[in-house]
Design a protein around this nucleic acid. Structure first.
Lengths: 175, 175
DNA sequence: CTTATCTTTCTGTTAAGACTGAAATATCAG
DNA sequence: CTGATATTTCAGTCTTAACAGAAAGATAAG
């Protein structure tokens, strides 16, 4: 698959952003490529297009699949695996958010709770304990909000987004 | 400054999370330490407490200040600089969000817009252009929402958070 | 069963960036 | 101005993680 200048720019930038977000550059590039391609590609095509080792593509695809961002499928009359990215951006967004939450936020919350529990038999005065509890509470609040928002039907989500700060009026009147 | 077991656990975990989020581990640890300390510390105290080089602390503090997460202040009768973390969690949250947005999302949006503009003289059919535009629009929407939410007065923010999915009802009735 | 094709795992290399310790610079007191 | 103290910059070392290439492992066709 040949990349046009714009496609290349998009793919390269996505890779760059990926590495800032703790995502392997190649993984991000592959995801970008699959998203743009809009049709299933084989691992070989990907490797050739991006100029990376075949083995690297294999590993990256596995990771993308584990994140649920890429699906494996087969094309009739072809033995090779083909790969395709999610096309819906909201699905993509939540897939990423969900994974990051699970890998980063959830463990943090666990540790924070442990810290709160251990607080009693620790010499770090009440002030420190209060601070740690505050962080725990803050994270819990944020996560529980996210969990609820995530389940909203798509139209409600969009409405909420488009409403923006005007939400303030609604809040004021109702609660 | 001596760390109790709980404080150490908190600081170490925060450092660990930092590195996952693309933040230097030491930077994150220092921030955690300052948050827990609740009083201004000197660079030397920090270096000794965390067991890292003094120079490393200097660089990290500079970064934390540039993010607006840590303030420099002086204690009467002491020539040394003292450092203190923001104590309000919402302020901290938005300081971090704001910086990440500026460093990561804004540049991405710029690139996406360039891609859309360059799309005309590019050979990558209309389907690819449509996809890139979709991403640009999605990001724009998200960012504009964030910009508005960020400005909400604290109580409104909390109300919004506590409301969670019940927001759906409000949305349905009003718009 | 055998061969051809495709995929994954493994190991050594390389590159990026964090970190240290030393040297340089700045700031204040006397 | 001089000495003492505090801070920053810099150059080299060390660590970590991405990556390529080779080898091993699957899987399907014939």
């Amino acid at each position: 698959m040949k990349l046009t200048p714009v496609m290349e720019k998009y793919v390269l930038h996505w890779g760059e952003m990926g590495s800032r977000w703790g995502v392997n550059r190649t993984v991000a590039q592959i995801h970008a490529l699959l998203y743009l391609a809009g049709k299933p590609l084989t691992a070989d095509e990907i490797a050739e297009t991006l100029g990376v080792a075949r083995s690297n593509v294999s590993t990256s695809l596995k990771e993308l699949q584990s994140w649920g961002l890429v699906k494996l499928l087969h094309v009739k009359g072809d033995r090779r695996d083909h790969f395709e990215a999610l096309s819906d951006l909201w699905d993509t967004f939540f897939a990423i958010a969900e994974n990051r939450k699970r890998r980063e936020l959830d463990p943090t919350l666990t540790v924070l709770r442990e810290c709160v529990l251990d607080g009693n038999e620790d010499e770090s005065g009440p002030e420190v304990q209060r601070r740690i509890e505050a962080v725990a509470k803050f994270l819990e609040r944020l996560l529980s909000w996210y969990d609820q928002i995530r389940r909203l039907p798509r139209p409600a989500l969009i409405k909420l987004l488009d409403l923006g700060a005007k939400i303030e009026k609604l809040l004021g009147s109702k609660s």
